[in-house]
């Protein structure tokens, strides 16, 4: 156990070192950094406006009020942007596999995922993160949740679980590259798509969708069920802990990744 903790500590330290190198690299290209961050901010601002204008016409969606939907959306956005910051390095992973630069990762005595993510830390996503935080604070102040300790914990668990779900999806996305040698755009349906339709509580999409997002890709665990608790639609305290279950989603994702690594073929020369 102690050795394990020691290894974890060392891994974290190494990740931070990787991140500092990434930041140093990005600072070499100042303009690009600011423009990308601004772009990210504006893109998600659009989504926010979309919700805003819709609620100017309709006042509730399936019984959820404007501020409740906003809370839901802001939490999903926050989960997504944290996951993106950590795991979006996988976005350019297909290039790494195709050109064979994944070789360099394999000849170093560290976990491959740690190295891939470390080498492509996305600080530019800070724009989206900022956006998410602002919307989140706004939603927290304006919805009638009646905050108490349990509810604060629920939100924290939602963010932890949601970050895990999105990170897992990014990992699966990357593992596909070992077989297709190319990124699969269709995977974006599950990542970017989930962020988009995650604006609204998943329950409104119907029963089948709810089942799918409970047992296959566990969005509902980090969004719908805890939201019911936050908005006082249920008193069942199990809903506080449900989001944490979503963390188990990482296990099959990691297994799939390992399976992919074994199929890595490198490139010529």
């Amino acid at each position: 156990m102690v050795i394990r903790m020691e290894r974890l500590k060392h891994g974290l330290k190494l990740y931070c070192h990787y991140v500092s190198i990434s930041i140093k690299s990005m600072m070499q290209y100042k303009t690009s950094f600011f423009l990308t961050a601004l772009g990210q901010f504006l893109v998600s601002f659009n989504v926010f406006l979309g919700i805003h204008f819709m609620f100017l016409r309709f006042h509730t969606v399936n019984g959820f009020t404007y501020s409740e939907v906003l809370l839901c959306f802001s939490i999903v956005l926050l989960e997504f942007s944290v996951a993106e910051m950590i795991a979006r390095g996988f976005d350019t992973f297909s290039q790494m596999v195709r050109t064979g630069s994944f070789d360099t990762i394999l000849v170093r005595p560290r976990n491959e995922i740690l190295q891939v993510l470390g080498s492509k830390f996305e600080l530019t996503r800070i724009g989206r993160m900022l956006q998410a935080t602002i919307v989140f604070l706004y939603a927290v102040l304006h919805c009638n949740v009646g905050w108490n300790f349990a509810k604060v914990m629920t939100v924290i668990f939602m963010i932890v679980g949601g970050t895990a779900v999105f990170s897992g999806l990014f990992t699966v996305y990357a593992a596909f590259c070992f077989f297709t040698l190319d990124g699969l755009e269709f995977m974006n349906v599950f990542t970017d798509g989930a962020r988009e339709f995650g604006k609204y509580p998943i329950g409104i999409y119907g029963k089948k969708m709810l089942l799918f997002t409970t047992f296959v890709i566990p969005y509902a665990l980090v969004q719908y069920y805890p939201l019911l608790y936050l908005t006082n639609r249920t008193d069942d305290v199990i809903n506080i802990l449900i989001p944490l279950c979503a963390v188990f989603f990482l296990i099959p994702c990691y297994a799939f990744w390992k399976f992919g690594v074994r199929h890595y073929k490198s490139s010529g020369s």
Partner: peptide
């Protein structure tokens, strides 16, 4: 690997 850099490009 003669054909592949292992150094970090921008630092």
């Amino acid at each position: 690997f003669g054909q592949r850099s292992q150094l970090w490009w921008d630092v």
